[in-house]
Amino acid sequence: MQTYRRGSSFTDRALFIAVALLAIIWIAPIIWVVGLSFKPNEVLMRTTGGIAAPPFTLKNYTDILASSSVFGWMLNSAIVAIGQTVLTLVIASLAGYGFARTNFLGRNALFVIVLAALAVPEQAIIVPLHTMFAMFDLHNTYVALIVPRVAFPFGVLLMTQYFRAISPEIEEAALLDRASRFKIFWRIVLPLSVPAQVTLGIYTFLHAWNDYFWPLVSATRPEMYTLTIGLASMQTNFAQTEGIGFLMAQAVFAGLPVLILYLFFQRYIVSAVAGGGSK
C-alpha cells in the first residue's frame, strides 16, 4: 500500500472526517435494521424512532426459528453453495492446469473460446437454459441449481493465471522424478495453489449463496427455494405488513452467515474482486 503521505495534516483530517461521515451514512441502514429487529412488533407499528430505547425483545428471532421454511431454505442454500464451490474448484483447477501447463492439440483454440465465454451474460442464455432443463424435467433439483453456474469461466481463468505463475521448472523436476501428469497436478501443483483455491472457493460460495435470477426461475417449489429466493417470496405484500420487526430479523438472520464469512475472509474476498479486475 502506498505509504507516502503528502499535504498538511489539516486537509488529511478534514478528508478523513468527510469519509467517516459517509461511512456512517453507509452503515446507518444496517444498524437501523439490526436495532429494530430487537423491538416488539407492536411498538414498531406505532413508531420506528429511537432504536436505542427499550423495550427490546428476541421474539422476532424466535419467530424465525419457529417458522420451518427458513431453515429448509438455509439448508438448500448451503447445499447449493457448497456443492457449487466444490464442483467449481475441482473442475476449474483441472481445466486451469490443463490450459496453463499442458500441451495438446487445439489447446489455444479452446482457450480462446473460454475467454470469449466471459462476454456472455446470464440473461442471454437463461431462457433457453430454462427450456433445456424443463425438457429433461430437471427443475427443482440441486443439480439444476448447481451445475449451470459452473460453466462461467471466471474460475478457470483465475486458476489458469495462478498456475502459470508457478515455476515450470518445479513441474519439470517432478516429470523427471517420474510423476505422472495427474500426480504432478495432485501432489505438486494443487498444494501450491491453496491461496487461489481459497479465493475462488469463497468467491464461488458467495455468488452461489446470493444467486438470484437462475434460482428464481428454476426453483419454483417452496421446498426447493434457496434462502435468497425464499426471503424474496416473503417480501410481497410489504406495506401492509404488521411484522416489520420480523422482516428485519429475517434480513439480519439471512445476512449473518455471509457477513461472518466476510469478517473472517475479507482479505481473500477483496483479492478475488481485485484479482479479477486488475489483470
Binding site: S167, E169, I170, E172, A173, A174, I188, P191, L192
Partner: peptide, 9 residues
C-alpha cells in the same frame, strides 16, 4: 535446475 526447482511445500 538453475533455480533448483525444489518442491516448496
Amino acid at each position: 535446475f538453475q533455480q533448483y526447482a525444489l518442491y516448496p511445500h
